[in-house]
Simulated scan of single mutants.
Amino acid sequence: MSGARLASSVLVGALLQRTRAEGGFAVVLAKGDAKSGSVLVILLERGVRSSILERVLGPDGAYAWGGSGPKALGDEEEVQKFLARKRKFDPDLWIIELDVPSAERFTAEMNAMN
């Protein structure tokens, strides 16, 4: 069914479990609403931030992961300011950090989960 949405806590749990199963490291930085909170993923590969993704509803009614955050992902201060703004705007937002062996492949698999 197009537009069907997993409970946020289930989606976050699945992402954490998948990351750990692949030998990666996963942590919840901010816990949001268990049922309907938005989810933001900070994706790292070998400790280096590669992207920030948000799960968004597309015009076709399907959910997908899209790029988000500042352009300078290596600028820690800018990233922290961005995250603080997101949480201030949406206190129900989940923020998770996933350090995976292949960030590009993992992102493709995340989109396939939708």
Rank of each mutant, 00 (worst) to 15 (best):
G23T: 05
V79D: 04
L57E: 15
K71T: 13
G32F: 09
L29K: 14
G69E: 09
G23H: 04
L83D: 06
G58R: 13
S38A: 15
A103Y: 01
A14G: 08
R20E: 15
E109K: 10
S36E: 13
S9T: 14
G24C: 06
A4E: 15
R18C: 00
K81M: 08
V10E: 11
S38I: 00
G61S: 13
G69L: 08
A62Q: 14
G24W: 04
E45H: 06
L40A: 10
D75V: 03
V27G: 00
A30C: 05
I96D: 06
A7Y: 12
N111W: 05
E97C: 09
D90N: 15
L16W: 02
R20D: 12
E97R: 14
V48L: 12
V27K: 13
L16E: 12
A4P: 00
I42K: 06
I95R: 01
R5V: 08
I52G: 02
L11Y: 14
D90S: 13
G47F: 01
V28C: 06
W65L: 09
M110L: 14
R85P: 00
V56A: 12
E77F: 06
F106M: 02
W65I: 03
K71C: 01
G32S: 07
M113V: 04
R49H: 03
I95F: 05
A21S: 13
S36V: 11
V100A: 09
A72V: 02
L43G: 11
D33T: 05
V41S: 07
M110H: 02
A30G: 03
I42Y: 00
N111I: 10
P91R: 04
A103H: 02
A26S: 12
D75F: 02
L16M: 14
V41K: 05
A14R: 13
Q80W: 05
L73H: 09
L40N: 02
